[in-house]
Design a protein around this nucleic acid. Structure first.
Lengths: 211, 211
DNA sequence: GTCTATATCTTGATAGAC
DNA sequence: GTCTATCAAGATATAGAC
């Protein structure tokens, strides 16, 4: 369900379902969901608007599947990193950096599908939101568990630090889809920078020392 | 230009311009710009759609002014913090925390106007974007200068660390408009948490030590 | 400054031929 | 599986009375 090999070269894609998904995801991301009409999508895939309805029940159903593909991508990446780490003896910091790197690589490898969760999601229709929430919650839970293992001291009900830290980290990572250009710098360097700052703190390099 | 006292109590607001601005900002934030029709706005302010056009030239003009009010709020807050710090002998960390706190307080005190810059901005029409960009750039420049003073080591053209750090920090702070509820926790505590992690690093509290 | 009434356009979606 | 043709609803915006 909601599987799409986003690495297949563009030229080999035959017109149809996959093509519509890719093109629509790109348009929703750049122009917005409500701002993108089915006519615009149809034009971009060189079809008539009515033909879209042979592949998708409605515009909402199309968006629902795009969001599902995006969550599959980051969830799969998380699991892959976790099973890779399972064999070695990684330090806390190495684990964090591996997962941040995995998340960011998945984000940019499936850019239109994952980025839609960052920018488009806040405004999706209620039924689309309802369909997407379980997958999102499950992925958030994976990160909550990870952060708790890495830094148990965060797990303080009074300060809510675990939740705040997770959401701030998500905010920092996910905002990158709006300003980071993988063609101008490596995603791994971005991950190293984010984790470097997050782990050691700005205090370690501040002009006035660690205070 | 684009001045609106957002602290005036709701009851004392007479119908008209200000009311439209507040209500429209709230609707754009929760439902999205394209998803919110002038009919919906008119209904919420208990007017007919045509009456909106007496106060605003177009729907785009209404959004443009909302975004401008939002930037005024955070810019004013930044300047206020800066001039306050000017008198004392604040440490690097204290300066950062004061500005993060100022940004977050301004964010939540003018929530609908500032949050629109986070969630609505990516999809605004081209002319609205063009009008909003100079104010946004100016505010970003203030933060770039601040971070350079606090941590000059970031200013490395090769790693682009200054820019990455600023954008990650913005990502973390601004994402809070989507998940932080000021009625359930103080904004100052949120600021302290973000700066605490950013300054000292997760390494200082990790289960395996600082590595 | 707000109203009624309406022009004009675009939207998501459907029917049915091929 | 794609097409032509079209519907019904909703969009922004305007004209002009009060």
């Amino acid at each position: 369900m909601a599987i799409l090999d986003t690495n297949t070269s563009e030229a080999s894609i035959s017109p149809g379902r996959d093509r519509i998904l890719r093109v629509a995801a790109e348009l929703f991301l750049t122009k917005g969901y409500a701002e993108t009409s089915l006519r615009t999508i149809a034009e971009a895939v060189e079809m008539r608007p009515a033909s879209i309805y042979h592949h998708f029940e409605s515009k909402d159903a199309l968006l629902t599947e795009i969001l599902s593909i995006g969550m599959d991508a980051v969830t799969t990446a998380f699991d892959a990193v976790a099973s890779e780490l399972d064999h070695g003896e990684a330090s806390e910091r190495e684990r964090l950096e591996a997962h941040v790197g995995g998340h960011l690589r998945a984000l940019f490898a499936n850019h239109a599908f994952t980025a839609a969760h960052v920018t488009v999601f806040p405004f999706v229709p209620a039924d689309v939101r309802t369909a997407a929430v379980p997958q999102r919650d499950a992925y958030e839970a994976q990160w909550t568990d990870l952060l708790r293992e890495i830094a148990p001291a965060l797990d303080n009900a009074r300060t809510d630090a675990l939740r705040l830290t997770r959401l701030s980290l998500f905010g920092a990572m996910n905002s990158a889809v709006q300003w980071f250009d993988p063609s101008e710098g490596s995603v791994d360097e971005l991950a190293a920078n984010i984790v470097g700052t997050l782990w050691n703190g700005l205090g370690s390099i501040a002009s006035g020392g660690t205070d």
